[in-house]
Design a protein around this nucleic acid. Structure first.
Length: 572
RNA sequence: GCACCCGUGGUGAAAUGGAUAUCACAACAGUCUUCGGAACUGUCGUUGGGGGUUCGAAUCCCUCCGGGUGCACCA
């Protein structure tokens, strides 16, 4: 429709003998200002030195076919609008906006389209033939999967769905932190203070491993030789020592058993889980590649990359003891990704605190010719905060994710026992996705599970309500139909047809909250029309056309929530 | 010290450079009574301060203030 409006405007400009110019066709923020608004008069007013409102009025008249200046072409005499039955009227408003109001026909057609496409409504092809790797979740083996890891999992999952819905081929990668010096410490701790059999049988083996890890640090305070012992074990692990390898493997297995339970509850899934250990033998060539560049330098025995003009602080790629770092492994990972899948885009969903690191990483990858900077994106999220203060993952002062999920379920159970899990998890997810991911989230149970407010359960309930109305109509023997669009304009129709644009914008901006906010708007509009007693005041509460709108609303909400990774219960 | 992010009603948030800055929660005042967990209406703002760019700034630029995070052998 946007394109059609551009054509209409350009036609009017030609008729007025005004040179064409760039202008915007947008949805006004306020639904009262029409469905599309055009700023062409304001843009032109400056160039022509005329009054924007008067100019807008002239353009509007030309659009309506009420031309004033010069002879009319026969086609134009009828007015462009008569050839576009989707447009109801054009009005001049504000500083000189041309507001286009769409017609009943347009809305009825869009409702028909939603009903027809159903589950596929909103899918588009903009990413056709393009491949994107999205790395998210990426917990550390043998370390707690806390509420802190929740954000990456939830946001990453939503992003993956957003890209997929826009036609991209999506590879979801869980880049496990399964390598690094902490495994030396862990091996020492297990051998000294642990019991493998007990850990294996524990309900939460990771919890047991974390306790051992904490104990190691406590003991290492007193006995400095422990650190050396740990380093030695990590070296053994790197060299493929059988015993070290076996213990490491157990840690991975125990952790994954525990993590998969969480993923199942969260509905998150991955196409691959290539942990850092997978790239252990792939780092040599990366370091060789780097040594060839002008930016490589050794300093105090370590190998570093220095950035031109000291744009960023240097990035270390090898420690003086010869072992590698996080960055080295990430470079190897991305080289492998390029060689194996040749993706158009690689996205890392990781916390904000790593944004300098990612700037460095992307810069180095460009130096090495692995990826261009525009092919690498760091989607950064803020922290969860609690009223009591910032949460800390150190010193065992940890909030375990499973406890949070259980609490959500328990609280949601007060609404409806049967759907407690779906509503509880949905509430947590929606709370995470409803605002810009860059911002910190203040964790507040009252808001998260609020049925009346801007919450996941509120949106889920709106969907359930569409089903309730459909069932009621069935009882009354009323069939949906778009044959007779009611005279009254439902504000909700003005929102539903925009769903595909919303999905597209969420992809462009890497912003799931765009979809969440849209769903809230839909839910609010829906409840002001079909919010309970309101409906019964209507003369014709369950007309066939209204039912069609209700069903379309259900389709859009369900699909929107699906993209966010949130399930829709059938009852609440 | 340097760099990055954030600052919007009492609270939590939204706003592709556009219109009278939107929504929810809480509070107060009122209308209505069920397909339901009712819903709706009204009241409450110098977008942290100050400059600048622009026809137009919460949004872009500069600067100051406040909060957060990061800056060589962790990940």
């Amino acid at each position: 429709m946007k394109e059609e409006i551009k054509k209409i405007i350009n036609e009017a400009l030609r008729e007025l003998k005004i040179e064409e110019t760039d202008f915007a066709v947008e949805h006004p923020a306020d639904l009262k200002n029409g469905d599309y608004s055009v700023n062409v008069a304001m843009v032109l007013a400056k160039q022509l030195g005329s009054n924007p409102r008067e100019l807008a009025e002239q353009i509007a008249q030309s659009v309506r076919g009420q031309h004033v200046r010069g002879p009319l072409t026969p086609e134009h005499a009828r007015g462009p609008l008569t050839r576009y039955p989707q447009v109801e009227k054009v009005e001049v408003a504000g500083a000189g906006f041309l507001n286009f109001y769409l017609s009943r026909k347009f809305f009825a057609d869009s409702i028909a389209e939603i009903l027809e496409k159903n589950d596929n409504f909103g899918k588009n092809e903009e990413g056709k033939g393009k491949k994107v790797i999205i790395e998210y979740s990426s917990p550390n083996i043998a370390k707690p999967f806390t509420i802190g890891h929740l954000r990456s999992t939830i946001i990453g999952h939503a992003l993956a769905n957003i890209f997929e819905y826009n036609g991209y081929e999506v590879l979801r990668d869980n880049h496990l932190g399964d390598w690094g010096t902490q495994f030396g410490k862990l091996i020492v701790a297990i051998k000294r203070y642990g019991n493998e059999e007990e850990i294996g049988k524990a309900e939460r083996p990771v919890k047991a491993l974390t306790e051992l890890y904490v104990k190691f640090h406590a003991e290492a305070e007193k006995d400095k030789t422990l650190e050396d012992e740990a380093r030695a074990w990590f070296t053994k692990l790197e060299q493929g020592d059988k015993e070290a390898r076996a213990i490491w493997q157990k840690c991975v297995d125990w952790s994954m058993t525990e993590f998969s339970k969480i993923y199942e509850r969260l509905g998150a899934s991955f196409d691959m889980t290539l942990g850092e250990s997978f790239f252990e033998d792939k780092m040599k060539t990366v370091i060789e590649d780097l040594e060839k560049t002008d930016f490589y330098k050794e300093s105090e025995g370590a190998k570093l990359v220095f950035f031109p003009d000291e744009k960023h602080p240097p990035l270390m790629i090898q420690k003086k003891d010869g072992s590698t770092l996080y960055g080295t492994r990430d470079l190897a990972t991305d080289k492998y990704r390029r060689d194996t899948w040749n993706p158009d885009l690689v996205v890392n969903e990781v916390g904000m605190e790593q944004s300098l690191y990612f700037k460095q990483l992307f810069e180095v990858e460009e130096m090495l010719g692995y990826f261009k900077k525009e092919q690498r994106v760091h989607v950064a999220h803020g922290l969860y905060k609690f009223k009591e203060g910032k949460m800390s993952t150190r010193k065992g002062n940890v909030i375990w994710l499973e406890d949070v999920l259980d609490e959500a379920k328990k609280r949601a159970g007060k609404i409806n026992e049967e759907t407690a899990e779906v509503v509880g998890i949905g509430a947590i997810k929606f709370n995470d996705l409803r605002s810009e991911s860059r911002k910190d989230i203040i964790f507040n149970w009252g808001d998260i599970l609020n049925l009346d407010g801007d919450s996941g359960p509120y949106v889920q309930y709106s969907y359930v309500r569409t089903k309730a109305i459909e069932n009621k109509a069935k009882e009354l023997g009323i069939e949906k139909s778009i044959a007779q669009p009611t005279e009254e304009i439902f504000e909700i129709e003005k929102l539903l047809y925009r769903f595909p644009e919303v999905v597209s914008r969420a992809r462009e901006t890497y912003a799931p909250h765009v979809i969440a906010q849209y769903l809230l708007e839909v839910a609010h509009e829906f409840s002001s029309f079909y919010g309970n007693t309101q409906v019964l005041k209507e003369e014709d509460p369950f007309s066939p056309y209204k039912l069609a709108v209700v069903e379309a609303t259900g389709i859009v909400i369900k699909k929107g929530l699906w993209i966010l990774g949130i399930q829709t219960p059938e009852k609440m």
